[in-house]
Nucleic acid binder design. Sequence first.
DNA 1: GCCGTTTTCGGCCCGACTGTTTTCAGTCG
Length: 584
Amino acid sequence: MLTNARIAACFEEMAFWLEIAGENPFRVRAYQRAAETAAGFAKPLTEISQAKLLEIPGIGKGIASHIAELSAKGSLSDLEALRKRFPKGLLDIVRVQGLGPKRARLLYEELRIDSLESLRSAAQAGKLRGLAGFGEKLEASLLRSIEFAQQASRRMNLWDARLVMSDILAAMKAAPGVRDLAPAGSLRRGKETVGDLDVLCAAQGGAALVEFFTRLPQVERVLAAGETKAVVWLKSQIQCDLRVVPPQSFGAALQYFTGSKEHNVALRELAQRKGLTINEYGLFRAADASRKKPLAGRTEEEIYRKLGLDFIAPELRENRGEIDAARTGKLPELVRLEDVRGDFHNHSDYTDGQESLLDMARAARDMGWDWVALGDHSRSLRVAKGLSIEDLRRTIGEVRAIQAKVPEVKLMRSMEVDILKDGTMDYPDAVIEEIDVVVASVHSAFSQSEADMTARLCRAAANAHVDIVGHLSGRLIGRREAYAVDAQAVLEAGAREGTAFEINGQPQRQDLTDAHARRAVELGAKLAVTTDAHAAAQFRYMELAVLIARRAGLTRKDVLNCLTYGELTEWLARPRPGTRAKSH
DNA sequence: GCCGTTTTCGGCCCGACTGTTTTCAGTCG
């Protein structure tokens, strides 16, 4: 099936080659915007009629016909034509810091440079400095940048990025004259991976701060440093940007540097229509050329309010309709970490976890949760010491027994039960009925055909003994691709049968994605945010799961974890289509 | 290429930093 991700990649590449070709920059942007839209769109675009496509902001006749062509042929003739005009290696070349489409094209046309290798040898031979706009310094800096063009293109997962960020923020608190400090960028928006860290600082006068920042022990290399801005490469192997603004501009700057870029562009277009203009220093009347009297700037809330909008949570700022919703009072009231009353999916040392059931129960209590379903792996997952039927029954007894030791939190027994190759469960029905919460996941035969995998997961999602389908895509970010599956079909099957879907907060999984979670809710399914904790400390992964839920626009009523213990047991005992109610 | 209670044509967000230049282009976010 032609996925939205695949469509997005085509438009992204279209934009790239058009830019190389020196096309109208606004046409380029239109393709980039279409790519963003496609990537974040919950429903498969191929299933939407041409007329309905035109209603989507950023999609007009041209893009809609491209989608139709992609859908029909699996390729784009315009894209094929562009690919023939330029060598593929230019895609690598623009990853080098300081090289954009203009210079890449010049390098290709003047020196036939079409790969990182030919770029390196030309720079080493001193051949670049003769070109218009190139000099010795640029040549030398490019030569250095080539070295880590590869690693710089890798993105860090959100959890690791948050750890590095908190370290940098702690260090920056000691900087001279700091009045306020905040993370911005994609990390603040809760994106699953982060390309660079954005640190925002409020202070009067930035030079001393920039200096302090560039000399932090965490810094490996300074890429740029001016009066109000610095860019460094950290020893943790990620780029970190610092911006310093005066305190009265902190909110405007926080809004500006949180992005996304697409959200900000749309916001500024809105401002423009109202005779206003926004930059990182504040919201101004367009007529106020001096930019001396901001209408807003100290807080983000002010900025949105003065634009006639409700406050938009950072997680929603992707220009996917949130601005319209904010204008008409239709923004969802997003689920919050404080709304979560417990976890469904985790592991003890009976299988591949690090701590005992009792320690996990105590940790759940320390999280402030009202209830927790303590889990483990089922018998087929040998590498994780999956539990035999006898061991499973014994651990169910143990969970009941340790309840007395942690009266503050209601304990349940959950199991992550393997979905076998044919879509049946790893325990017989009679055994499964003894488990309080059944999370069904795929851990084997990842290379099945899309049709087989889809049938397998649909069968599990429609199984009345399954409460929650676990990590639907099976991807491990940066390590393993998602297996081939028609997620839409599985979400439909689950929604029809009243089965919930997991939003797994493990940093490498983050699965469902925000787009699939949104689709699940649109189809009428419930979601469960989970930690998949293999150690007590990993209960904190709930933070990531909730971020995904928020990015998906989920409210308390969409998320099972917001139920009280009483409400949850009612949900677990709910009548399922085609079967008798489960007994508990 | 997209878009429109000022417009169906002519606009399309804004600023910092670098290196190349004597006023600016390219890149980046």
